[in-house]
Amino acid sequence: MSEMRYEAPKTVEAAVALLAGASGTLRVLAGGTDLLVQMKSGRVDPTLVVDVKGIPEMTTIAVENGGFRFGAAVPAMTLHEHAAFSKAWPGLTEAAMLIGSYQIKGRASVGGNLCNASPAADSVPALIAAGATATIAGPNGRREVKVEDIATGPGKTSLGKGEIVVSFFLPARPAHSGDAYLRFIPRTEMDIAVVGAGINLTLDASGKCTAARVCIGAVAERALLVPDAAKALVGTTVDAAAIEKMGAACSAAAKPIDDKRGTKVYRTKVCGVMAKRAAAIALNRAKGAN
């Protein structure tokens, strides 16, 4: 029964100062849908909890350079309800909306989902596929980092002492772009991904794929960007053969484990299946069928 200090700073700088200046077990609290569960079950017993929900730049969605910047503590439901955001990034929005029940989605944030660093986090493959960058603030100021460089393994991130993820930036969307995220769960909701796959692609006017990013989840120690899968699509019309090749590249890149949620063999195969199905959805979206 150690004592816990709770702080709710109003600025990023104040939050960073608190985290940088304290010792012991430090935790950042956004929606709390992971942290509070971990605290109640005794898995973590923090000495300092810094609540970031009172920091405006961490809880707002804004248009920036034709793209979107959204705070790391913005709840999934707020992304979903933001008409322009969810229209531009339906795949990422759907991925965030797969996190838990409605009550959970009203609190859970993409920043929290990323920094909790579960390999099965639903919003992360979609965010990486989208090519998002994160703004990180720390004692030495701010830096921009690719999202795929943040989580390093289960429960581990590349964040340094006193650093927090402030916001995410999604670049302006070229015409004929679409994204999608699908996960496999044995039920229909209220579950954790056995595998997940996020895809973001852009077509030219003739329907040829000019850019693609493919990221698979729950098949390695962190979400995996699969360049070979993207290569299988770029330059094609995303026809059945290309999609098949892309799925095979995902299965080839996967390095899952056997655990209570699925077997190695199963995950290897089904991550390819999910990627193929997600690609079909992303393609439709890129062709304008939102």
Binding site: P186, R187, T188, E189, M190, D191, I192, D259, K260, R261
Partner: peptide, 16 residues
């Protein structure tokens, strides 16, 4: 036991 909770002890949910 590795799945001592409703998350991983998978009882059906209504939408199933």
């Amino acid at each position: 036991m590795e799945n001592a909770g409703f998350l991983d002890y998978r009882m059906p949910v209504a939408s199933d």
